[in-house]
Design a protein around this nucleic acid. Sequence first.
RNA 1: GCCCCCAUCGUCUAGAGGCCUAGGACGUAGCCCUCUCAAGGCUAAGACAGGGGUUCAAAUCCCCUUGGGGGUACCA
Length: 522
Amino acid sequence: MSPFTRFAMGPVRTRFAPSPTGYLHIGGVRTALFNWLLTQRYGGQFILRIDDTDAERNRTEALQPILDGFKWLGINWDEGPEIGGNCGPYFQSQRQHLYDEAAKRLVASGHAYPCVVTADELRVDRETSEKAKKPYIHRGPRRDADPASNVALLAERRLPIRLKVPVGTTIVLDDLIRGHVEWKADDLGDPVILRADGRALYNFATVVDDAAMKITHIVRAAEHLSNTPLQLVAYAALGEPIPHFAHVPVVNEPNSKKKLSKRDMAKFLTSEIRDKLERIGWTKEQIAARDDLNPATVAFYKEMGYLPASLINYLARLGWSMDDHSEIIDIKTMVANFGLERVNSSSASFDPDKLYWVAGEYMKELPLSEKIAGCLPFLVRAGVLPDQPSPFQLEQLERIIVASGDRIKLFSDILQYGTPLISPVVSYDEKAVNKRLRKDGVAPVLAAFAEVMQTMEPFEPHALEAALQALSLERGTQPSLLIHALRVACTGIEVGPGVYDVLGILGRDESLRRIRSCPAFI
RNA sequence: GCCCCCAUCGUCUAGAGGCCUAGGACGUAGCCCUCUCAAGGCUAAGACAGGGGUUCAAAUCCCCUUGGGGGUACCA
């Protein structure tokens, strides 16, 4: 029976189990996305379960940024933090009793046994094997003891519990992405599933929880493939049905075959990225105060003004394809076509350039009102506009955004195009001034055009263009001479929207003021 | 060391034995459009890791090598 037949027979239940680390990692969210897409496609539930068993590394406040990241992206969960569900609690730290109970049950049934070997003895054994260049496979002395005596032993001493790997067998997995994989049980040591203090180990807790939560499809990063045989043994010992597994390829660093790791995220906060953040209004102190502001996290893209749908689109295409040509795939189409059978099995490098392009494609389609709403906070943060802009300022912003057109790919791009028009020119680009203003013949024609502007009616782009063409013809100069001079005079820079739009947005008085005080005349 | 996974342009991918002188996309370069920058149009460079098989035929199947990754924990 194909796994896809089984999808139709009951709801698909998938889960994502992040640790509360304070940020949502790009690689993690991609895995979560595949889980979510699967449930959207086949109908089912996506569950968020918080893996907070590692007490030292966990802060409760560190969960919020993760939930915020999912919310921003529109990846909603059907069960989990904030909303609960029938299989709670959804925090592993609150489920210890379940792991404890399950482990004891396995001892009683002879599938597990208490470990009487001390950590020191284990270390010595391991080193001995290593010296002999032999793999170390641990089998504890109580392994073959009578289950009842093991139970009795546990009643008097607190000991770690190990799972019995069935010797002589072959453990097989038919992974939905990797295909058929097998391991010889004899290559695997008996793993500890419960520490002496009762805390469960990952490989056991995850199985107990996935079984209890009736997870049908375990879609997780490929780095967990090696954990799977042990987990399969645990399922069998527990007498639980084995879910489908799909190991998705990991996300690599840009232009690299190295995994995009949580551990060395700091290195992604390059000076270039710092500059970018500062340019959009972040102070050095604010950047330093947030360790999640770097390109390996979802929060970074939110702060840079990426449209969430564009990140989803990019991440889905990283490792998955719909067909041989589609790049921009809206969420509805994605859901309707998503399937594990078109997820690649090799790892993929994260490409910021392509993401930027995707972001631009989405921005092109965004309705004007949403563009304005999205850009505004960036201008406010940078101090270009007040918290409560006047109707005039809002109208001006709208005209700037319209005039900027496809130049705005990220909301933060408004700063590059909007600031020179909203704020007074504080500095002129030296190169632009030399090239466009301090040039023979520019000053007189600029002055003459200012005269025309003074009285022309109406003061709007079409009329301005006609007037400029007429003046250029009359004086025998190239229109472009005046056009370029005007842009630099009015904005200080050489790039930006069409110059007639620039003048129209500034208005007659402001345009004249800027022209008359520009470096062409001093 | 041992076990497992992966391998097509710089990057993301298409390709399930003949449709492949390997297709698309991002990026790069050039040209066109043009008041600059974007956007758009056109063009170019650019890949089957290597070696053996199997087959009339291999990017596609098998084996080996190489390279990358993961595991080998009382981490997750």
